[in-house]
Each structure stands twice: as structure tokens, then as C-alpha cells.
Computed example of a mutant assay.
Amino acid sequence: METVAVERNDGVVTVVMSRPEKKNAGSPTMWRELAQTFREIERRSDDRVMVLTGAGGDFCSGADLEALSGDALDYMKRASQAAEALSQLTIPTIAKVDGVAVGAGWNLALGCDLVVATDRARFSQIFIRRALSLDFGGSWLLPRVVGLQKAKEIAFFGEILSAAAASELGLVTRIVGPDELDDVVESMARRLVRAPAQALSLTKQLLDAAADGGSIEAALQRENHAQANNIVGADAAEARAAFMERREAVFYRADLHSATAPA
């Protein structure tokens, strides 16, 4: 691939947007390669956690409008395919953010389950300052976290937010120093890799479904089906055995997964 690098290490797949000369701005090629990468990850049973980040000290500066050629709607559809493929991942996803995450770049981060940012990271729904409206799922993602009125304020003014300001609004999970970013994200990813994969995936899906609204009755029905699947699964059997034997449960072994991983 030209604009995306993929690294795999014992259950953690790291996706690196790599256009550092453009602060990793999204081109049609990058949107296509991201969509392709996310879809491949969803198909692979050995990918248990995804980390999304950018090369060269920045996360993503949004869409590269200089790369726009031809039909604008076709360009936007390519970006939307990447956003949709990200949203369809059933494994935990972590955005590892340094430098700028603005426009579609911020919405890429918001599309992940967790956002870990350095204290020098900067965020903005910068669209209005470019005579544009929200894209890459921002109109759906932002109000789910901060509510409609605050989402409108953020979108209407397009101000640059520090990591601390974004964190106060619930838009950043954790803030760390630049020299801590790799280690903190690696530690979080490792904990998630060692967690029971099915229960973790179902938990993610239950929370996402509940965030869309609906009744507690509907949520309870979803929970019942999910829990019934967990109870009869191998991970629950391992958890019960570990409890009885007074040891730590083992839900993931890298040697077994690497032996059965698809090509």
C-alpha cells in the first residue's frame, strides 16, 4: 500500500496513516487503503485489538482537498467507505493521537473506541473554517459523546481544542506525555488482547447499540442473547476453571493464534 502501513504483533494490529509530508491528510488512495485494511482486520481472527495512528508526529490533518480530482461526490463516498468500515470493526480500537487531529482526522479518532492523546495534541472540527460541513461521520459521532448543543458549538465555530479541553468534554480517554504515548497504548492494547475476545466484542456491540437509543427492554433482550452465548463459550469455561483452580485465566496464547492465523 502507498499511504497505510500495517504492523501485527501478537494480537495487536497497528494501522499507521503514512503521508507525513501532508500531516497524514486523507487522499482518495488513503481512504481506499484504510477501508481495505479495516475490512481485512475484521476478517482475521488473530487481530484482537487495533491501534490507529499517524506517522511523523501527527495523527491526521483531515482530507487533502488538493488531491481532489473529478467528481466531489465520488471523493466523499470513498472517505465514507473508510468511516463505515471502521465503524463495523467488532474488536476494540484505540486511536493513538499526537499532533493534529482535525476535520476528518478527528472523526477518525472519534470512530475508535478509545482515544489516547499526548498533551500537545490538538483537535478541531475545522470544516466551517474551510466553508465545509461535517463529514467522516462527525455529525453522528460528535453529538453521541457531547450532546447536540455542545456538538453544534464545536462544529459552528471550528475552534482548536487542546487535549485537556477535549478530555473535559469526554472526547479523549486519556492524556499522556509524548514520551509515554507508545508505552501506555501498548499496555492498554495488551490488556485487551488478553481479555476474553467474545465477551469484549459483545460488550462493545451492546454499548454501541444502546447509545443509539431505544428502550431498556430492547437492551435487556440484546444482553440476554449475548450473555447466553458467553455462558456456553470456551472463554467462560476457562474463567470458571481458573476460579476453581485459583489461577489467572488465560484467554489468549500467541503461539496458538500465530499457528492458525490466516495468510
Rank of each mutant, 00 (worst) to 15 (best):
residue 166 A to V: 02
residue 47 D to F: 08
residue 21 E to L: 03
residue 26 G to M: 15
residue 224 N to C: 09
residue 115 V to Y: 06
residue 140 W to I: 03
residue 180 E to M: 04
residue 144 R to H: 04
residue 98 D to I: 13
residue 61 S to M: 10
residue 12 V to L: 09
residue 52 L to N: 07
residue 221 Q to N: 14
residue 112 C to L: 09
residue 187 S to I: 12
residue 236 A to H: 10
residue 242 A to P: 01
residue 190 R to M: 12
residue 152 K to A: 13
residue 11 G to F: 05
residue 107 N to A: 04
residue 7 E to A: 11
residue 209 A to N: 00
residue 23 K to L: 11
residue 261 A to Q: 05
residue 4 V to T: 03
residue 94 I to Q: 05
residue 204 K to Y: 07
residue 139 S to E: 10
residue 125 Q to F: 12
residue 152 K to S: 14
residue 107 N to C: 03
residue 188 M to R: 09
residue 261 A to E: 08
residue 203 T to V: 07
residue 188 M to L: 15
residue 143 P to S: 01
residue 110 L to F: 05
residue 103 G to L: 04
residue 85 A to S: 12
residue 207 L to A: 14
residue 40 E to T: 14
residue 1 M to R: 13
residue 91 I to M: 15
residue 122 R to G: 10
residue 184 V to Q: 11
residue 260 T to A: 13
residue 133 S to P: 00
residue 9 N to P: 03
residue 122 R to T: 10
residue 135 D to Y: 07
residue 124 S to K: 06
residue 211 A to Y: 07
residue 91 I to P: 04
residue 174 R to W: 07
residue 7 E to I: 02
residue 129 R to S: 04
residue 110 L to Y: 05
residue 234 A to S: 14
residue 199 A to L: 15
residue 257 H to Q: 08
residue 259 A to H: 08
residue 30 M to W: 00
residue 193 V to E: 04
residue 48 R to Q: 01
residue 165 A to M: 15
residue 64 D to C: 03
residue 263 A to P: 06
residue 75 Y to R: 11
residue 180 E to G: 03
residue 49 V to D: 02
residue 132 L to R: 15
residue 239 A to F: 14
residue 141 L to Y: 08
residue 258 S to W: 06
residue 24 N to Y: 02
residue 42 E to S: 12
residue 174 R to T: 12
residue 13 V to K: 12
residue 32 R to W: 09
residue 126 I to Q: 07
residue 85 A to D: 07
residue 229 N to K: 07
residue 86 L to E: 13
residue 43 R to C: 02
residue 60 C to I: 06
residue 56 G to S: 01
residue 106 W to C: 04
residue 84 E to F: 12
residue 21 E to D: 05
residue 86 L to C: 11
residue 126 I to Y: 08
residue 15 V to N: 09
residue 61 S to R: 09
residue 227 Q to T: 11
residue 232 V to T: 09
residue 44 R to S: 10
residue 172 V to L: 04
residue 28 P to N: 01
residue 74 D to K: 13
residue 143 P to E: 05
residue 206 L to P: 01
residue 108 L to R: 05
residue 96 K to T: 03
residue 88 Q to Y: 09
residue 37 T to G: 05
residue 118 T to C: 07
residue 7 E to Q: 12
residue 216 I to N: 14
residue 189 A to I: 12
residue 256 L to N: 11
residue 71 D to W: 12
residue 80 S to N: 09
residue 146 V to M: 01
residue 1 M to D: 08
residue 179 D to F: 15
residue 21 E to G: 02
residue 233 G to A: 12
residue 174 R to D: 04
residue 230 N to L: 15
residue 69 S to P: 08
residue 134 L to M: 09
residue 162 S to M: 11
residue 18 S to G: 06
residue 35 A to I: 01
residue 20 P to D: 00
residue 62 G to C: 01
residue 169 L to P: 07
residue 241 A to M: 15
residue 51 V to P: 06
residue 57 G to I: 03
residue 152 K to W: 14
residue 81 Q to R: 14
residue 60 C to N: 15
residue 192 L to H: 01
residue 104 A to D: 10
residue 149 Q to A: 14
residue 155 A to W: 08
residue 191 R to L: 08
residue 35 A to Y: 05
residue 223 E to P: 00
residue 139 S to I: 04
residue 8 R to S: 06
residue 67 A to E: 10
residue 160 I to N: 10
residue 3 T to M: 07
residue 165 A to P: 02
residue 15 V to I: 15
residue 119 D to K: 06
residue 214 G to R: 00
residue 234 A to H: 10
residue 156 F to V: 03
residue 66 E to M: 10
